[in-house]
Structure formats: C-alpha cells, structure tokens
Simulated assay, not measured.
Amino acid sequence: MSVAADSAVLTFRAAGDADVPAIVALVESAYRGDVSKKGWTTEADMLEGQRTDPDGVADLIARAYSRIVLAERAGELVCCCHVEKQGDAGYFGMFAVSPTLQGGGVGKAVLAQAERVARDEWGCARMEMTVITIRDSLIAWYERRGYVRTGVKKPFPYGDERFGIPKRDDLEFEILSKDLR
C-alpha cells in the first residue's frame, strides 16, 4: 500500500527477519542518544541505554497477530511501528520516525496504517498504547488523533535494562485508547 506524506510516496509492508537490524537502528535513533535530539520524540533526557534489541524485534515479528509495519520512501526505511491483536483491541507500540523527518506527516500516515490493520484485518474495536506520563507533547499529539487518556497507569520496568536505564525516578506509563469503529 502507498500513501503520500510530506509530498513523497510512502510504501508500507510487514517486516521480516532480514529487517531486524534496520528496525533496531531506526528505533534507537528516534529515542536514544544525540541523534534522537534532532527530532521531538527523543527520550534521551529521561532514559539512556537501549530502547529495543534484535531478539525483542525478532520475537515481535514471529508472533501470531503481530506485525511490525515498515514505511519506506524510495526504498529507505523512514518509520516503523508494532501493532498486535490483544483480545478485541489492537496494541500500538515501538513507533519510530526518522528524527530528521519528524513533523512532516510520516508518523500520522503510519499511525493510520496501523489502525487500519487492527480494524480491517483483525476486527479490533479499539487501539491501545502505553505512553510515559511525563511525555506531555507526545500525549497531546495522540489526543489530536482521537486517543484519550484512560487514567490506567502501569509501572515503568525499573531495573530491566532491556527498556533503558532511567535518569529519573518518576517514570510510569498511562494507557491511551481510541475507538476504531
């Protein structure tokens, strides 16, 4: 499937095992280290260490009713996300846009594609995600796209370096939800 975003055509496809290194590199560049600071989604001020790893990405690709959606422009990976059917909801996560392309419509197009997969292919009634509660601008971005804060909080996995090394002691997640019907 193709969509125009930022005046260039995006093509979507499901990730395969050969895509794992590129996905890990994209996710790390969007959230960690100095390169992530070129975009607005960086978590570098609150977390260091890894955001994901090859084993974790490969596991998501291998699961039933789980897909890593890749968005490419002229054959170059520019965005990815993970969408998974969990009961009657789709779960949205591991959303990463190349830092130099953030704010240009790519993310909005990929989010819409993930919602389409959950609704049209898997029959999900809603999409859910977890967002770190102190990420006000990110939460506002999702709210502009129809997501609502549920008030349901989940603890941050302190001590599990697979999710990063916190620089703060006040991190927690909140579930955001959107009706897809």
Results as ranks from 00 to 15, higher is better:
73 R>S: 10
75 G>P: 05
67 R>E: 09
58 A>E: 05
61 I>K: 02
55 D>Q: 14
72 E>Y: 02
54 P>A: 12
70 L>E: 01
59 D>W: 07
75 G>W: 02
60 L>P: 05
51 R>T: 13
56 G>T: 06
80 C>M: 04
67 R>T: 09
52 T>Y: 02
75 G>C: 06
49 G>P: 09
73 R>E: 11
52 T>K: 00
79 C>T: 12
57 V>D: 01
79 C>H: 01
52 T>N: 07
63 R>V: 00
76 E>W: 09
72 E>H: 04
80 C>V: 11
80 C>Q: 05
50 Q>N: 15
66 S>D: 02
50 Q>S: 15
51 R>V: 13
69 V>R: 00
70 L>F: 12
58 A>L: 06
63 R>W: 03
53 D>I: 06
76 E>N: 10
50 Q>Y: 15
59 D>L: 14
62 A>Y: 07
78 V>W: 09
80 C>I: 04
80 C>A: 14
71 A>Y: 02
71 A>V: 05
67 R>K: 12
55 D>K: 14
52 T>L: 08
60 L>W: 03
70 L>D: 00
66 S>I: 04
79 C>N: 01
52 T>Q: 04
49 G>L: 08
64 A>D: 09
71 A>N: 08
70 L>T: 07
62 A>F: 05
56 G>V: 11
60 L>Y: 10
69 V>A: 01
69 V>W: 00
80 C>D: 04
63 R>P: 03
60 L>S: 01
64 A>E: 14
57 V>C: 07
